[in-house]
Amino acid sequence: MENSAKQVMAGDEPIIICREMNKWFGDFHVLRNISLEVMPQEVLVIIGPSGSGKSTLIRCINRLEEHQDGTIVVNGIELSHDVQNIAEIRRETGMVFQQFNLFPHLTVMDNITLAPMKVRHWARDRAEQRAMELLERVEIPEQAFKYPGQLSGGQQQRVAIARALAMEPKIMLFDEPTSALDPEMIKEVLDVMKELARTGMTMLVVTHEMGFAREVADRVIFMDMGRIVEEGPPENFFSPEIEHHPRTQEFLDQIL
């Protein structure tokens, strides 16, 4: 496996380790022998055609999907059926979904403070203070007491990012965060993600935004048919001079 520059630089233990991971949906083999290591502060972008298993891969990391074979170790804790371990891993990983999945019956503020208060047992004052800081960071502090239904898609997705960050996670998982957005809203969400990457958050991003991948990623992974076909730093990945795997070339030809 080729190491990216940042991995060598950090010289740390990987924060996510997948070894020989396999997953089936019934008879359908979604993930085949996935082996992957992610270093702290690394930004990993996962691309690939739909149905290639990229969403399933990151959903396995916080156990929204169960892997059937191989091992996943997140932040030093192995994912198994042990619910205590699952809870611990979920505390340390935030997730942002394609469909935002904000809680429609709670205000923006309550959406953000809910988990810190219930899971981390913070006092309300502390949770609300933290929520306001995060809302300022995603640039919508004035929306704090509105309901999700009153916000635009881009604003909702930024609230969703703030909600995930409120738990102060070590890892952020992004599952096609801009795919459900209008073109002019994509930028505001990507800007927030870029800012987050600059602060050194470990990020796994499933996306079709090649511009984002080129600009922010430390490493790009191309997946097809449940396999990692190719991986490398973005400057190699999007360079026309480098010879790619034929499947990667086909995909890149279609989208670039």
């Binding site: 990983t93 899971v119 998982l173």
Partner: peptide
């Protein structure tokens, strides 16, 4: 289903998820 996934991803317990997210909706 996304509501359940969001609650789980945030680490809410089964009881809190039922009481605070599923039931009101």
């Amino acid at each position: 289903k996304g509501q359940l996934e969001a609650s789980r991803a945030l680490g809410l317990s089964q009881g809190d998820m039922l009481r605070l997210i599923i039931l009101p909706q």
